[in-house]
């Protein structure tokens, strides 16, 4: 461990969805080897010992696959490093004495539950509106009986790596969810298993996305630049294509 770092935190505190939030300053001593979330654990221990209210934040697997951790760090979702989630961000990415601003995802569609924790069930409702495939009952079909070209499988898999964390929404100036919806639609529309619902799916998911209050896409590319899974902007072009095709077919 050896050297410790002094970090000045400006953290967003908000009691609940309707309360007025504010920034609160804290000093933390952290090891450069700690993850950003572990630094928050240290801070929360401190707050609890002092009899104060610990800071609420989301986390689960802490290995970058569950999509629970969030936090906008110095204005960037999941912090300054590309291709990582907040739990994979280490304190060595910061300098001793740095002031770090930590905020929740901000979007009307993601109301704050408390402090840095936001309600992302809008994504769940988008998924349940169309992000599924129909499967026959009975014995499982042999996987190799359905042939899928390698490049198609690769593109679908790349889209499928979306963990639904919502960084795209938080990075977008319009709080648009199109990278998320694009990833899900691309994944399912490219594979044979997703064909029966292909057109109804994209229309239902876009309708639900609009109903949840996400904005429209301005193609700034901020979402793809901040995505911890590096989902490319091309999934949004694909979403557009799928949607227009479905609309042309009268869906």
């Amino acid at each position: 461990m050896g050297n410790t770092m002094n970090i000045n935190l400006k953290v967003w505190r908000q009691q609940n969805e309707n309360a007025q939030g504010h920034f609160e300053e804290h000093k933390v001593q952290a090891s450069p080897d700690m993850s950003f979330l572990e630094m928050f654990d240290v801070l929360n221990e401190q707050l609890i010992e002092d009899g104060k209210d610990p800071i609420a934040f989301d986390h689960d697997c802490r290995e970058g696959i569950c999509g629970m951790c969030s936090m906008v760090i110095n204005g960037r979702p999941h912090g300054p490093k590309g291709g990582v989630t907040t739990c994979q961000l280490h304190m060595r990415s910061f300098k001793d004495g740095d002031t770090v601003v930590v905020e929740p995802w901000r979007a009307n569609a993601f109301p704050v539950i408390k402090d840095l924790s936001v309600n992302r069930s809008a994504f769940d409702r988008i998924i349940s509106s169309g992000g599924y495939v129909s499967v026959n009952t009975g014995n499982a079909v042999d996987a190799n009986s359905v042939l899928i070209p390698k490049d198609v499988a690769d593109t679908a898999f790349q889209a499928a790596t979306c963990i639904g964390c919502g960084a795209c929404v938080s990075a977008c100036k319009n709080a648009s969810a199109m990278l998320f919806v694009g990833a899900k639609v691309t994944q399912l529309s490219m594979l044979p298993q997703g064909q029966p619902e292909r057109e109804s799916r994209v229309v239902a998911m876009v309708d639900q996305m609009d109903a949840e209050g996400f904005g429209a896409c301005t193609n700034t590319g901020a979402c793809a630049a901040e995505c911890p899974k590096e989902i490319p902007l091309s999934v949004i072009a694909n979403l557009n294509r799928e949607y227009y095709k479905a609309k042309l077919n009268g869906k």
Binding site: G75, R76, P80, R106, N174, A225
Partner: peptide
């Protein structure tokens, strides 16, 4: 689109990603 984020970010280094 401007109405989609009522609560604004405190830190907003826009040039970092677009």
């Amino acid at each position: 689109n401007q109405k989609r984020r009522k609560s604004k970010y405190g830190a907003n280094p826009g040039s970092a990603n677009s």
